[in-house]
Write a protein that binds this DNA or RNA. Structure first.
Length: 464
RNA sequence: GGUGGAGUGGCCGAGAGGCGAGGCAAGGGACUGCAAAUCCCUCUACACGGGUUCAAAUCCCGUCUCCACCUCCA
C-alpha cells in the first residue's frame, strides 16, 4: 500500500505521487515571529515532522523548508512599543521557536529562510505579476488583482462575491476591496527596502511564494500549514504563484488546531499555553506524544488531565523498552510492522499506528514475563522502530541525552546500593517494617524501587 | 450572508455498512511478605428524530448543539 494524503485542494485523500521518484519536497509555513510559541504552533511543526519522518522511513529523500516570517505589522508594533528594532523582536522570538522545536524533537529543516533575506526574490515576483497583468502598483503599495485570476478562491472553496467585504481603509486605492497587498509602502520610521515602486516592505503572503520557489523550484510536492492559514494566506500564495506561471504545490495539507475549553488557542484570545510553560509540567517527549496522539486533522482539546493520561501511556511504552534492554541489550534496526505502515500510509493515521505500538508492547511484556527472549526481542525492536518514525525513540536524540541521567546515576548508584543491601538484609530476616521504611525513604527522594525475580531495580521518578 | 469542521463509553481518542481500535481510569483475578511493574478478565458508546437495508456509529432526510475561517492567526 502506498502513501495516501488528504489534499485540501482536492478535498479528498489522494495517492502521493512525487514529482521526482524517490524525492519529496515540502514547504511548511512556519512562524510569524511575533511572540514565543504556544502548543498550537508546535503541533503544526510536529505534524509535519511526523510526515517528514515517515517519508524518510519510506525511502524518500526529503527536502523540508520551513520559513520564518520575520517582519509584519505586529512585529513592527512590538518593536516600537519596546523601543527596540523590529529585528530584535523577531530574533528573540525566532530563538524561542527554535528552542521549542528542538525541545519537542522536531528535526531541523533542510532550509529555514527568513522573509527579510528574500526581498530581491519578492521584487522579481512582483515584476512578473505586474507584467502579466495580475498586480498593480498604487501609491507605493503593490496589490494583487484578485479579479484577474478566475480560480481565485478555489483552494478555500470560496467565491469572491460571497466574501464579506473587507473593512479596509485603503479600499479607495484598490481596484477591488479583496485585492491584497503584495508590498506596503514604508510609513515614516518603518523599515524599508528600495523597489521600482518606491521604498517599502513586504506584505504578508508574498514571502512564502518567493521563498518556496527559491528553494524548491516553481513546482514542488507538498505545502503545509495550519488550517487557519487556508484563507487568506494560502489562497493568496497560490494566487501569486499560479498567476506568475508557477505550478507550485501539488498537495496542500492542513493541520487542525489545539483548543482549550472548546476554543481555538490563540495569541489574540490570550488563552495560549506557552511551550516553555508546559514543559515544566510534563517531559517534552511526553508533550510530543500527547500532541501527536490525535490525528493531525482533528482538533485537539488541550487539558492537563488528558496530557497526564498521555504521559502515562508513553511511560508504559518507555518502561517496556527500558526493561527489555536489561535482558536484551540495545535494539537492532528492523522494519516497522505492516499494520503500522498501513496506518501511517493512510493519511498519517498516527492514532491507529499507536494502537499497533501498544499492542506490540503488550505482546512484548508478556514475552518478557514468560522469559521468551526471542519474542521479546522481536517486539522490542519493532516498538523502537515505530517510535523512531514518530520521533519518540528514547534512544534517539534529543531524548537519549535528556533521559540519560548518567552523572546522577553514577553518583547515586553506590549510595542506593547500600540502602538496597540494608533492605535486602531486613527482608531476609522478615523485618518488613524496616524494609518498607527504607524503600519509602528512597521514594521520598525520588528513587523508585521495584522488586523483580532478578532482584530490585531502581529508577529516578519521572513525576514532577 | 458565504465556506468548512465537530458531537462516540467515567475521560481522551480512532473507525466510516456486519466481526466492539488503542490509551487512561475503575472493578475482579494471577504474581508479590507488602507494594510497584506486568499479564488475564470485566463494565460503560456512537447528539436527537425519521428513513434505506437482512444488517447503520457508519448511507439518506430533517433537527439541535458547538467550533472555525471570510484579509492578525499554527
Amino acid at each position: 500500500m502506498n502513501l495516501r494524503l488528504y489534499d485540501t485542494a482536492a478535498r479528498s485523500v489522494r495517492d502521493f505521487e512525487p514529482l521526482q521518484p524517490g524525492r519529496a519536497s515540502i514547504y511548511l509555513c512556519g512562524a510569524t515571529v511575533q511572540a514565543p510559541p504556544h502548543v498550537g504552533h508546535i503541533r503544526s511543526g510536529l505534524a509535519f515532522d511526523i510526515l517528514r519522518r515517515w517519508l524518510q522511513a519510506s525511502g524518500y529523500d526529503v527536502t523540508f523548508v520551513r520559513n520564518v516570517t520575520d517582519i509584519d505589522d505586529k512585529i513592527l508594533q512590538r518593536g516600537t512599543d519596546e523601543g527596540i528594532p523590529f529585528w530584535q523582536v523577531a530574533m528573540r522570538n525566532e530563538r524561542a521557536f527554535t528552542w521549542a522545536y528542538d525541545q519537542l524533537g522536531c528535526l531541523p529543516p533542510t532550509y529555514e529562510p527568513r522573509a527579510t533575506g528574500h526581498v530581491p526574490e519578492m521584487v522579481e515576483l512582483m515584476q512578473r505579476l505586474i507584467d502579466a497583468g495580475h498586480a498593480y502598483p498604487a501609491d507605493g503599495d503593490v496589490y494583487f488583482d484578485v479579479r484577474s485570476l478566475p480560480e481565485y478562491g478555489a483552494l478555500s472553496g470560496q467565491r469572491l462575491d460571497d466574501m464579506q467585504p473587507a473593512a479596509d481603509s485603503d479600499a479607495q486605492i484598490k481596484r477591488d476591496p479583496r485585492d491584497f497587498a503584495l508590498w506596503k509602502s514604508a510609513k515614516p520610521g518603518e523599515p524599508q527596502w528600495h523597489t521600482p515602486w518606491g521604498p517599502g516592505r513586504p506584505g504578508w503572503h508574498l514571502e512564502c511564494s518567493a521563498m518556496a520557489s527559491r528553494y524548491l523550484g516553481p513546482a514542488f510536492d507538498i505545502h503545509g500549514g495550519g488550517m487557519d492559514l487556508l484563507f487568506p494566506h494560502h489562497e493568496n500564495e497560490i494566487a501569486q504563484s499560479k498567476a506568475a506561471g508557477d505550478s507550485f504545490a501539488q498537495y496542500w495539507m492542513h493541520n487542525a488546531w489545539v483548543t482549550t475549553s472548546g476554543e481555538k488557542m490563540s495569541k489574540s484570545l490570550g488563552n495560549s499555553l506557552l511551550v516553555s510553560e508546559v514543559v515544566q509540567r510534563v517531559r517534552p517527549v511526553e508533550l510530543r506524544y500527547y500532541l501527536g496522539s490525535a490525528h493531525y486533522r482533528s482538533m485537539l482539546e488541550f487539558s492537563d488531565e488528558a496530557m497526564s493520561e498521555a504521559a502515562a501511556g508513553y511511560r508504559r511504552i518507555e518502561g517496556f523498552v527500558r526493561r527489555a534492554e536489561e535482558s536484551l541489550g540495545m535494539p537492532e534496526s528492523v522494519p516497522v510492522p505492516d499494520a503500522f505502515a498501513a496506518a501511517m500510509n493512510d493519511d498519517l493515521g498516527v492514532p491507529q499506528a499507536l494502537a499497533v505500538v501498544h499492542d506490540t508492547v503488550r505482546v512484548g511484556n508478556a514475552a518478557l514475563a514468560a522469559d521468551e527472549l526471542v519474542g521479546a526481542r522481536e517486539a522490542r525492536d519493532e516498538v523502537v522502530a515505530m517510535l523512531d518514525v514518530l520521533g519518540l525513540n528514547p534512544y534517539a536524540p534529543p531524548w537519549a541525552a535528556q533521559s540519560d541521567d548518567g552523572a546522577a546515576r553514577r553518583a547515586l548508584g553506590p549510595l542506593v546500593d547500600v540502602v538496597l543491601a540494608q533492605r535486602a538484609a531486613a527482608r531476609d530476616r522478615k523485618d518488613f517494617a524496616v524494609a518498607d521504611a527504607l524503600r519509602d525513604g528512597l521514594a521520598a527522594s525520588g528513587i523508585v524501587v521495584e522488586d523483580t525475580p532478578a532482584g530490585p531495580r531502581w529508577s529516578l521518578a519521572e513525576e514532577i
